[in-house]
Write a protein that binds this DNA or RNA. Structure first.
Lengths: 142, 142
DNA sequence: CTATGTGTAACAGAGTCTGTTACACTGTTG
DNA sequence: CAACAGTGTAACAGACTCTGTTACACATAG
């Protein structure tokens, strides 16, 4: 299975905010760019705000703003804000404890999945929204 | 979102085959250890066999066997056999091409997700079924 | 006070995942 | 060659998740 589309949409939303840094952007305008419903955008913005990545400006002329510089928002921050852990699922029903293998496989899987998760998080932490936004800008000529 | 439980179950199944290397193991016995239905095991074994990781022995006394040494089966082989790509999903509906950002975000996401996928696959490729099986064996005392 | 825009709940349709039943097929064994 | 053990696979159900949509309470600028 893969991630939900929320991760990609969240990056898209934050790119919009980064490229208009300082201005409050309406969920409706973002939704127009993403090609979806404003409520979908607001739902994701809610998760990003809970994680401290964005903040809302209510009232007339309101919208969403970055809560900290784009260079200090990594893909790991975004992933954690919009996707549920874990990265790798264990058995739905625990294995048979009466079996020699069923008895011992879970901690081995947990250890291995922890290693994979650490590696993935290192990888996610390497890119910031400043990187993404500047790559989008660089495609002006393309 | 996380992987389906198929990845964990597939590793469990292959651990059973590794620890009984050479003997055909019935789906019913594996299912007993996994705590699920034999058909679930056979479905996953089918995917593993299509990927060339296991083979079936039909008829009386039949069951599943490793198709190659456990040291030559990596978690990446297993992941690819039982999970659908991609690791990271793009937008469900493509972004608005009339928008400056919607226009350019997709190739940037594709490039970044390709980097993440490469890193993840490197990580998945580092562990073999021989490693997993020996860790399970080492837990004899625990 | 009014208009604009957010926050959030609730629901529907589509899709996926696991478990289950059912049954055709293969090949060993007597 | 006949019986049987066991696989391969289709089909379906229930649970869950995801996205899109409607609806409406709330905040705040002007």
């Amino acid at each position: 299975m893969s991630t939900s589309t929320r991760f990609a949409v969240a990056i898209h939303i934050l790119t919009s905010l980064t490229l208009r840094e300082g201005q409050a952007v309406r969920s409706e305008d973002i939704a127009h760019s993403v090609n979806t419903n404003p409520t979908v955008v607001r739902r994701i913005l809610g998760a990003l705000a809970s994680a401290g990545l964005t903040q809302a400006q209510l009232g007339v002329g309101g919208g969403a703003l970055l809560a900290r510089p784009a260079g200090q928002i990594t893909l790991l921050d975004i992933y954690r804000a919009v996707e549920e852990p874990p990265y790798f699922a264990l058995h739905r029903v625990p294995p048979n404890p009466a079996c020699h293998i069923g008895n011992r496989i879970t901690p081995v899987l947990e250890q291995e999945f922890a290693r994979l998760s650490r590696d993935l998080e290192l990888s996610l932490g390497q890119t910031t929204m400043a990187d993404i936004a500047s790559r989008v800008e660089e495609r002006r000529g393309a």
